[in-house]
Design a protein around this nucleic acid. Structure first.
Length: 662
DNA sequence: GTTAGGG
DNA sequence: CCCTAAC
């Protein structure tokens, strides 16, 4: 219910002002013509034509479309109808194949290289089949543009897994093209069985999103779609979230895929697409990147959730879409986002911004510090998993986006970019985005209230989240945060998806992580969406008690310890300390006691099970001997000279030490 | 402040 | 290594 309202509001806001639509038929025509042309320039023309049509339609069709859409959407089956209603003009009805063709077509126009074209085509085909992930990937991009939130985490995952890297270029192209296509696809999507499959749904939704870019109709459709079925809702919902996420992608330094994408965009999309988009006042496309935890994570201990709080964004805000570098960016479809925003926050102000698009180039986000405590003996693989878990947990539901301008946080989410001073480049240069842990949890709450807002949080996906900066929407991550922020236009909550979250755990779950301890709230991952309290919970330790740095005992130290214990016995740790580690300030008698404990354990397990710097077997033997000796009270009874006993217990262990002791 | 143990 | 209970 809420959704509807929001959607409705959103839609309304969108349609009216912002984007003019051309009749879908017109759009379609445009596509065809373009298709026929098959040239790159075509896209622009198409876009232009579409825009015009959209504009025209927007007035008349938006209202009607919405209603019809919703109705149609109510039923999955209704999808077809939906198509007709919505898309008819454009597509009238396109069998899947047609849609594919169109899509392909569009792609071709965009694509510079045939290879890319081929890829796209293949992708489009795959999409039609619903089978291919690649397609989903592409669509993902497209959707991401919208910021619709259509993005489905799952999709992203798929996308990532599949091809993000290889097809990134094509994807980008698709993005902006996709919009046109999207309209067509919408119908298809709905009709297709895809609905059954969430991922598929996502796929569709993406398209939709794209479509929306061109016309508001799509948005409406989208909302309608949501109404259709819970699944749909959820998916889209997720998708949206994903889109937002995507938009807001966290770009990590390590991001592998990013470069390609970026480059791609820069090379092509920007030039061709943007102009068009701009004319339409819609974003050309969004870049999304996949977030890789490796880079960002710090191995540290978590002091306090609060401490973690902010991360600075490395971001650079650029007024324009050039993304020379990396990541993310965004275009803004004001309309779309505005719509989203409105839906989410009920804010319509965004519409005002529509005229002027502000592009944000978020080169990278700094992720809040993650404190991960992992034993030295842990494997690199376990470390990675631990980090991923931590990241997942945070991204899943524990982050919100903050906007920092000139070092100041812009807390008023209700303000427009203009009002916030984000309208001009100068400020953009001093603009930063932060990822902050969300203190509040209740994603659920959020979700309940705003289904739309809830986005799925697949861990991986989330990671992949895109960063987008729109005029209206800036932050995308975190629903939890959003909730409170309903007023925010700028923050769209994109991230959390409870549903998806589970997936992460699975992957993560298989831990081989022996001792790895992630101090981060991994719980979030497993938890239902949100319930969790992500970051905060785990910070049990007060900041005050910072954990000491880990200082593994060297063999020399071990030897000294063993020697001391052989002579002094266990239970006299203070003496041991004074005797053997008096100068080692970092070794307390408690440490020595602990070390002895671990030594005893180590000596009792098979060498294969031992981790860390290997301790000579002879030392371990001595450990066992001493341990046996002193643990039997013999040492105690006999006094402080275990040597004899030690020898008896373990002849091999005998050493000079005993001699000394003796 | 030390010890002993669990975490 | 941390934290604590028990001395």
């Amino acid at each position: 219910m809420v959704l509807k309202k929001r959607f409705g509001s959103r839609t309304v806001s969108f349609e009216a002002p912002v984007v003019p639509r051309a009749p879908r038929s017109a759009r379609r025509r445009g596509h065809h013509s373009k298709i026929s042309v098959g040239k790159q320039p075509c896209p622009i023309e198409l876009l232009a034509s579409l825009a015009g049509k959209l504009l025209q339609e927007s007035e008349s069709s938006s209202a009607s479309n919405n209603a019809s859409y919703e109705n149609d959407l109510l039923c999955k089956d209704g999808v077809k109808e939906e198509k007709q209603h919505v898309d008819k003009p454009l597509k009238v009805e396109s069998p899947e194949q047609e849609s594919c063709k169109e899509r392909t077509f569009v792609v071709q126009c965009v694509l510079e290289s045939e290879d890319q074209k081929r890829k796209l085509e293949s992708q489009s085909k795959a999409e039609s089949d619903h089978s291919v992930e690649c397609t989903s990937v592409i669509s993902g991009f497209v959707h991401s543009d919208k910021g619709r939130g259509d993005t489905n985490p799952a999709l992203f995952n798929d996308v990532e897994g599949i091809r993000v890297e290889s097809t990134s270029k094509s994807i980008f192209k698709d993005l902006w093209k996709g919009r046109n296509i999207a309209a067509k696809y919408d119908g298809m999507k709905l009709q297709k069985p895809l609905c059954r499959d969430p991922s598929r749904m996502t796929y569709f939704s993406r398209h939709r999103t794209d479509t929306n870019l061109f016309g508001r109709d799509d948005d409406e459709k989208f909302s309608r779609m949501n109404k259709c079925s819970n699944r749909l809702k959820s998916f889209r919902y997720h998708q949206r979230a994903g889109d937002h996420r995507i938009r807001k992608l966290l770009s990590s330094k390590c991001w592998k895929a990013a470069p390609k994408l970026k480059d791609f965009e820069c090379s092509k999309a920007d030039g061709d697409v943007k102009p068009i988009l701009i004319s339409y006042k819609r974003k050309a496309f969004h870049k999304w990147e996949r977030y890789r935890g490796d880079c960002l994570y710090k191995k540290r201990k978590l002091f306090d959730g609060s401490s973690i709080t902010t991360t600075d964004v490395v971001v650079s805000g650029e007024s324009n879409s050039n993304l020379p570098t990396k990541s993310v960016i965004a275009d803004e479809d004001i309309p779309v986002e505005g719509g989203i925003a409105s839906s989410i926050s009920g804010r319509q102000a965004s519409l005002q911004v529509k005229d002027t698009n502000v592009k944000f180039s978020i080169k990278s986000f700094k992720i809040p510090e993650l404190f991960i405590d992992v034993p030295q003996t842990a494997t690199v693989g376990s470390l990675k998993r631990t980090i991923i878990e931590a990241i997942t947990a945070i991204l899943g539901s524990g982050l919100r986006v903050g906007v920092v301008l000139h070092g100041k946080k812009i807390r008023d989410d209700g303000r427009t970019l203009l009002q916030s001073g984000l309208g001009c480049q100068e400020n953009l240069e001093n603009l930063g985005f932060t990822l902050e842990p969300t203190l509040e949890n209740p994603h659920r709450t959020t979700v309940a209230e705003n289904p739309l807002l809830t986005a799925s949080c697949d861990a991986p996906d989330q990671l992949t989240s895109v960063c987008e900066a729109n005029g209206s929407e800036i932050g995308v991550l975190n629903a939890a945060a959003n909730q409170p922020l309903l007023t925010d236009a700028s923050d769209h909550i994109v991230d959390n998806t409870p549903e998806k979250i589970p997936t992460l755990p699975d992957s993560l779950a298989d831990n081989n992580l022996p001792d790895c301890t992630a101090i981060i709230p991994l719980s979030a991952v497993h938890m239902e969406p949100l319930a969790a309290v992500p970051i905060n919970q785990k910070n049990k330790r007060p900041e005050l008690s910072q954990r000491r740095i880990r200082r593994p005992f060297s063999v020399t130290e071990v030897e000294a310890l063993v020697h001391a214990i052989e002579e002094l016995g266990t239970g006299r740790w203070r003496d041991v300390k004074l005797c053997a580690f008096e100068n080692a300030d970092h070794r307390t008698y408690v440490d020595l006691k602990d070390k002895w404990k671990t030594l005893v354990h180590t000596a009792s397990i098979s060498p294969q099970q031992r981790r860390g710097e290997p301790v000579p077997q002879d030392l371990l033997d001595r450990v066992l001997s001493a341990h046996a000796y002193w643990s039997q009270d013999q040492g105690k009874l006999q006094g402080k000279h275990p040597a004899g006993l030690l020898k008896a217990a373990d002849p091999s262990a005998d050493e000079g030490i005993r001699a000394g002791s003796t």
